[in-house]
Design a protein around this nucleic acid. Structure first.
Lengths: 200, 200
DNA sequence: GTCTATACTTTGATAGAC
DNA sequence: GTCTATCAAAGTATAGAC
């Protein structure tokens, strides 16, 4: 996935100038999250850190949730773009992604918060974004796993779709457990999942 | 786990009468969640549904988060108490628990929201509750798995602690994926995880 | 001990001026 | 395109009635 594929979250009919300013705001917002985490991320605090009014942010994003989703999507796209070489096996992708996520605690916190918010019935953008994201990640992982099954590196007696969903779920869930209790051992536990997937 | 073991979330020095009223409030709050989900669960809405002022709720609970954590803890304890017979194998426990959870969407939503909130640095009660809960569930599951490993029903070439953390993470993560996209197949995927755990 | 009334502060969101 | 002004709602805290 390259940055070119990044879906534009927010105003659809944005002008080029507006798009540039939007990206500028997103970049600065990501910096804010990296520095201070995802704790006091009200519209006013973000706006203050960027140097504009909170109403200005709502000029580019229809709601606070839309801004936060755009921030997460942008950060994810940036990280994906920085990885030029895509590792072959699916489990390694998730391991390295989880490790990279956890090195920026604010992002995991933001991700978890947004996923939880997307479960609420009011959430429109969040539900759409994460539904699509889960489907995309599971789909990609399923392909990788199927190839690995044919190559003989992953056991082929279980459906790849299930394994893909399990990997995503385990990765998400372990990151949360690790944030609450670092002794869980994120990397080792994910590698144990990798062992589980190997053929007999 | 019986209801007797339920930790008292909230005021420590509560009198018997206060405890009774507290439980009454919790019972009614759970009803509210069952009926309307966890969408518009502000203190004022909950209070209105119960028939008291929102300030009255804060007489029994120090904060909104404390009330919500108590609601979840109470609902979990109720459900645990209703299961008299504890299934032997660890994976089945998680499967049935996940199925039961998902039948009350509001509870999963509440759980996910509270876990996300507990990651914030301000969260005190939430962080304490979920850290303890994860440790307790992982510990119990680790014991079950170790017994199953010695009985030969679970492969013993991988550490039980890792498997326990994986089961919890997969269960939590899959419930979220299922809520966003029911076609994921919560039960089947969890049973596939059970297959992964079987010895060669 | 229990609860209502009330006020304070912050929040997301909107409207309109420049 | 950006701001100020303003609003309604929310969490929180206090005072006092019973």
């Amino acid at each position: 996935m390259t940055a070119r594929d990044e879906p534009v979250i927010g105003r659809e009919g944005a002008r080029p100038k507006g798009v540039a300013r939007r990206l500028e705001i997103l970049d600065r917002a990501i910096e804010v999250f990296r520095e201070r985490g995802a704790d006091g991320t009200s519209l006013r605090r973000i706006a203050e850190a960027i140097g504009v009014s909170h109403a200005a942010l709502l000029h580019y994003f229809d709601s606070r949730e839309q801004l936060l989703v755009a921030v997460y999507a942008h950060a994810e796209a940036q990280r994906a773009a920085s990885e030029c070489t895509t590792p072959p096996t699916g489990i390694d992708v998730m391991v390295t992604a989880a490790i990279a996520n956890v090195e920026v605690p604010g992002l995991v916190q933001l991700y978890t918060t947004l996923v939880a918010a997307s479960l609420e019935s009011q959430s429109e953008v969040g539900k759409a974004f994460f539904t699509a994201r889960f489907e995309r990640v599971r789909g990609q992982l399923t392909e990788d796993l199927r190839a690995a099954q044919q190559a003989g590196t992953v056991r082929d007696d279980l459906p790849a779709e299930h394994l893909a969903a399990l990997i995503v779920a385990a990765s998400d869930g372990l990151q949360v457990q690790w944030l609450l209790e670092p002794s869980v051992g994120l990397e080792e536990t994910l590698r144990t999942l990798g062992e589980l997937l190997k053929p007999h």
